[in-house]
Nucleic acid binder design. Structure first.
Lengths: 186, 186
DNA sequence: GCCTCAATAGTCCGAAACATACCATCCGAT
DNA sequence: ATCGGATGGTATGTTTCGGACTATTGAGGC
């Protein structure tokens, strides 16, 4: 412990997840991410091996190994880590948010909206469906934070779908019934 | 020219801007970014010096210098660059988008929504106002792409503001008649 | 008992992006 | 004359990205 490091976004995700899980291996973190924040904040799984190690060096988490089997590394928050997490939660952030949407970028640069819409609709409808499923699952037992976040996410998706719907079906030749054969096979 | 590189998001932004401007210095690009795509896709200005150079090495843009004054570097698309840009525009991307919103992250991890809302409202209202101003300015003369992108951006902001409004003024005492002041006037 | 396949679990690395600090020049107003 | 602000640019250490690559484990078929 004791290299001074600065806590990055990734750090706070790891700290946050550990505070929820109590104790976790990087692989657990990976699962958690993809089930939760990964929906809107993606990161490569390699980070989830590198970052806890970094946090351990700086004394925010402890690293122990299983004594048997794969001898996986188990991480959990130290007092310092818990404090860091909590004070992060308490700090108000006017921080700008980033919406990195390739489709939006292409739209801006003049791509054909109708064409874009086709793919975007599929993507976002699927995501919306996922969210709605999640919503049902978590409605009862989950704590407030995740539910609120999911709520905002769902609204975003719903709106995005609406937007693209408006641009989907009337490119220039408006009339006939397009058979919307968006079969959802994987 | 002729190192093979792969075109990143940053590359495509630079190519796109150059295709709009015809010719530009990194500083020009910097201005353009902050006036346009920078609203939703931020990047450090140093990239706008590094990236064109990289693209020049690979033959996507030409680099010339002013012969007088500051002898700034001027970039413009080569045929290859223009092609790359256009084919990028044409490719359909189911690519997932990322919403990197610290506030959302904190919300997820259990931060106090009421408190968060305060700051978020300020930020997003301001952004919304910006967008609405931009909207008026660009309504007439601007081409379709930017207008559509702006439209989507504006809706996002509007919705985000709505969301935080719901969490701003009634922290835990729920009951009374909420005046649903979600006026949708532009 | 052996094999295979999927899920689990982890390492590694080059390239890109990030954030910021720093430097230099020009020009108009005091 | 000089000061400050806009202009214009470089440099650098850290983080992130993205994916390739390698094991191990356990369940089910044969």
């Amino acid at each position: 412990m004791s290299d001074e490091i600065e806590l990055t976004h990734t750090s706070h995700i790891v700290l946050g997840l550990l505070s929820m899980a109590g104790e976790a291996t990087p692989y657990d973190l990976k699962q958690m991410v993809s089930a939760t924040v990964g929906h809107f904040w993606s990161l490569p799984h390699s980070q989830l091996y590198a970052e806890p190690a970094r946090l351990a060096r700086a004394g925010y988490v402890t690293e122990t190994r299983e004594t048997e089997g794969r001898r996986r590394k188990l991480y959990s928050l130290t007092t310092r880590g818990r404090q860091a997490h909590e004070s992060w939660l308490g700090v108000l952030t006017p921080e700008p948010y980033m919406l990195r949407d390739l489709a939006l970028l292409k739209l801006f640069f003049g791509a054909d909206a109708h064409q874009l819409a086709e793919v975007q609709l599929e993507t976002h409808r699927q995501k919306l469906a996922e969210y709605e499923t999640l919503m049902e699952q978590t409605a009862a037992y989950s704590s407030a934070g995740p539910r609120l976040a999911l709520d905002l996410g769902t609204r975003h998706e719903r709106q995005t779908v609406e937007f693209w719907e408006e641009h989907a079906s009337q490119p220039k030749m408006a009339p006939a019934s397009r058979s919307p054969n968006t079969s959802r096979g994987s």
